[in-house]
């Protein structure tokens, strides 16, 4: 079977019962938006009710595209305190 027959990929966003905004939870395949919503219920909420679902076909999402040269890395360099690994925490403390 050729790849062109493959169901399109959808990005799934969920807002939980008490959530303030939709969060990206993952992706899945579906033939259309209606089915993508149903599949999302089955795959990502295991039927949890009271959640709001958004589905967006992956190809319609535009993402920022970091340039592959210096400018991307430079700004980060003088703000290393923003990176979690800047703070050396002993392993015994556990997950943080």
């Amino acid at each position: 079977m050729s790849a062109s027959n493959e169901w399109p990929l959808w990005e799934i966003f969920i807002r939980g019962q008490h959530g303030m905004s939709h969060r990206h939870v993952g992706s899945l395949h579906a033939p259309d938006a209606e089915r993508a919503i149903k599949n999302a219920r089955d795959v990502y909420t295991r039927r949890n009710e009271g959640v709001s679902l958004w589905v967006v076909e992956a190809k319609h999402i535009s993402a920022s595209s970091p340039s592959d040269k210096g400018p991307l890395y430079d700004p980060a360099k003088d703000k290393i305190y923003r990176h979690p690994t800047f703070y050396d925490i002993p392993d015994e403390v556990g997950k943080m």
Partner: peptide, 11 residues
Amino acid sequence: PVLEEDIALAN
């Protein structure tokens, strides 16, 4: 027939 259906049928 496809993963998404597999999961839905199990539900």
